[in-house]
Amino acid sequence: MFSAIGDIAGQPTRAERRTYQPVRRNSRAVGRETGFWRPVTRKEVEAVILAAEKLELATKRAGRGKGHRNGALGAVAIEILRLFQNVVDFRTGRLDPSIDYLMDRLQRSRGAIVAALKALRDHGFLDWLRRYVPTGGQGARGPQVQQTSNAYRLTLPQRARVMLGRYFQPAPVPDDHSHRQEQQAAEIEAHRAGLTELERTMLDVDPDDGVGAALIRMAQARAARKERESSTQTESLI
């Protein structure tokens, strides 16, 4: 998920680029997002949102008293990230809502949405790919196409990843769980102490494995030898 846009593969073909239609530069045909979208987990998306919120809060505090109501990202940017969390396809990473969709869902102006998207990209939390679709018409210079919604991808800047270092570490094991594990280990050792060498060997090794089978045979031989020695000692006492 968190990779550079330079890794994107599948550039438009020469024929696709030379349609001479009024689409934005570096746009790609819909369906050619190969390498841009990748599967993403809910935790990864939550990490992006959390880091963005921390940056917004820190920069907002730094700007207090200087006439700044927002931080580096702004409230609308945080709203967009939270909405993206609800519409992204975690299995494929697909994320391509239109500006009109964002305006309708968030009840924000086009200018506010565009500015927030730009702030997210400028600070490393978002990347996008411009796209176009064919209209079905045929012009004098080739197939007619039109601009469509961007393909978006959430990213996590390295400085934000460092800031959220603990977020990516396994949660500490609760004390009661550790105590329960210690009790179970003690019970297992107590049970093993009551077993013979042969029984412990058969419990510890795989009899289908060559080494395991050899260890079992050795333990069986020692057990048989001890049994013979015990029988001899018993006979001598009679």
Score class of each variant (00 low, 15 high):
1 M>D: 08
3 S>G: 04
4 A>D: 13
5 I>H: 07
6 G>C: 01
11 Q>G: 06
13 T>P: 06
13 T>W: 09
15 A>W: 10
16 E>G: 05
16 E>W: 06
17 R>C: 13
22 P>Y: 09
24 R>Q: 14
27 S>D: 12
28 R>F: 03
28 R>W: 09
29 A>R: 14
29 A>P: 02
30 V>M: 12
32 R>H: 14
34 T>D: 14
35 G>F: 05
36 F>V: 11
43 K>P: 06
46 E>G: 13
48 V>T: 11
50 L>C: 10
52 A>E: 06
56 E>P: 04
60 K>D: 05
62 A>W: 10
65 G>F: 00
66 K>I: 08
67 G>C: 08
68 H>P: 05
68 H>M: 11
70 N>V: 00
71 G>N: 02
72 A>P: 00
73 L>M: 04
78 I>L: 07
80 I>C: 00
81 L>F: 03
83 L>Y: 09
83 L>N: 05
86 N>V: 07
90 F>C: 13
92 T>G: 08
94 R>K: 10
99 I>M: 07
105 R>T: 01
109 S>F: 07
109 S>M: 06
111 G>T: 11
114 V>S: 02
116 A>V: 05
116 A>N: 08
117 L>F: 01
118 K>L: 08
118 K>F: 03
120 L>V: 00
128 W>S: 10
128 W>Y: 11
132 Y>I: 01
134 P>A: 05
135 T>F: 04
139 G>T: 14
141 R>Y: 13
141 R>I: 10
142 G>L: 03
146 Q>P: 03
146 Q>E: 14
149 S>M: 13
152 Y>S: 03
153 R>C: 03
153 R>S: 04
157 P>T: 03
159 R>Y: 15
162 V>W: 11
165 G>D: 15
167 Y>A: 07
168 F>Q: 05
173 V>I: 12
174 P>F: 00
178 S>L: 15
179 H>N: 14
184 Q>R: 14
186 A>Y: 12
188 I>R: 15
190 A>F: 15
190 A>C: 11
192 R>V: 08
193 A>Q: 14
196 T>D: 01
196 T>N: 00
199 E>T: 09
200 R>K: 14
201 T>K: 01
202 M>D: 02
204 D>W: 09
211 V>C: 04
212 G>E: 04
218 M>S: 09
220 Q>N: 07
226 K>Y: 10
228 R>C: 08
230 S>W: 10
231 S>W: 15
232 T>C: 11
234 T>G: 04
234 T>E: 11
234 T>I: 07
235 E>F: 11
236 S>Q: 15
236 S>M: 15
236 S>E: 15
238 I>N: 15
